[in-house]
């Protein structure tokens, strides 16, 4: 696999018809993701970052510009591109192992090879012992780990993560971030993560792209030069977070923030 998983976006455009008007969702998005990289996309709601992932996964092929994976234009879904959605999207009528096995429906592997692969994936995401369990019996974090296993079992060149941890509680989210890092180091898959959470982006990625909305476009690209494993409380971490938040127009000067606190205190 090593060299595969290089993703190139060349001035990608996307528009939807809303009534009589055309709504520009993405405009001139160009981006290179090297093989084995971990790239995060952060941006406000409605900046088109999920739309971008849908284009890359191939669910929507009606776009302008080019999206190339290892030089080939994307023209539909492929097993070389896995995706994990925000909702785990496990089929409620299939057990955990059947859900993961759904990815292998079309593989020409023997039943035995399939069973081995499923077991291996379940071990990788640490769900051994839950093979015969139905999704409603799993916690949110476990279900999301199963969804990751389902996406990884085909050994995709690239794994797309559409806010996969967005619906989880803070503690589970931190655990799963560490889990994702571990899986990434084991599998070496190219990862693209869409997230709202700047901490999550810095903790996980080599590179972070900030998007702005109306129309969705890339406003700035950051390289994360921190040593791993990353310390969420280190000064480098916090400095980068400050820059990214400023790019998102979410960062206030400290003095203003203090005044706000005082105002709040007065109100209380």
């Amino acid at each position: 696999m090593g060299a595969s998983g290089k993703l190139e976006l060349r001035s990608v455009h996307k528009q939807y018809a809303v009534g009589r008007n055309m709504l520009q969702v993405l405009s001139g998005v160009s981006l290179d993701v090297g093989p084995g990289h971990f790239l995060s996309i952060v941006g406000p709601s409605g900046c088109g970052k999920s739309t971008l992932l849908r284009l890359v996964v191939g669910l929507d092929v009606d776009y302008g510009g080019d999206i190339l994976l290892d030089g080939n234009r994307i023209a539909g879904p492929s097993l070389a591109r896995g995706i994990v959605f925000q909702d785990h999207r496990l089929l409620p009528w299939l057990t955990l192992e059947q859900n993961i096995g759904l990815s292998l429906e079309n593989s020409d592997w023997s039943a035995r090879a399939k069973a081995d692969a499923i077991r291996e994936q379940i071990t990788l995401v640490r769900l051994s012992g839950f093979e015969k369990v139905y999704p409603h019996q799993l916690s949110g974090g476990m279900a999301q780990r199963a969804a990751i296993a389902r996406a990884l079992i085909n050994k995709p060149d690239i794994l797309l993560l559409d806010e996969p941890l967005g619906a989880l509680d803070a503690i589970t989210r931190i655990r799963l971030q560490e889990e994702l890092l571990r899986i990434w180091s084991v599998e070496g898959t190219t990862m693209i993560l869409v997230t709202h959470d700047v901490d999550e982006a810095i903790f996980l990625s080599n590179e972070i792209v900030v998007m702005s909305s109306n129309p969705g476009s890339i406003s700035k690209r950051f390289t994360v030069a921190l040593s791993s494993p990353r310390d969420r409380a280190s000064s480098g971490f916090i400095e980068l977070k400050r820059q990214i938040l400023a790019e998102l127009h979410l960062y206030q000067q400290k003095t203003e923030a203090v005044e706000d606190c005082v105002d709040m205190a007065a109100l209380i």
């Binding site: 996964v57 191939g58 669910l59 879904p77 492929s78 097993l79 995706i83 959605f85 909702d87 999207r89 089929l91 759904l102 990815s103 429906e105 079309n106």
Partner: peptide
């Protein structure tokens, strides 16, 4: 959503 999943899994 489930149909979409099926499409992604070919």
């Amino acid at each position: 959503n489930y149909i979409e999943l099926g499409q992604v899994l070919l």
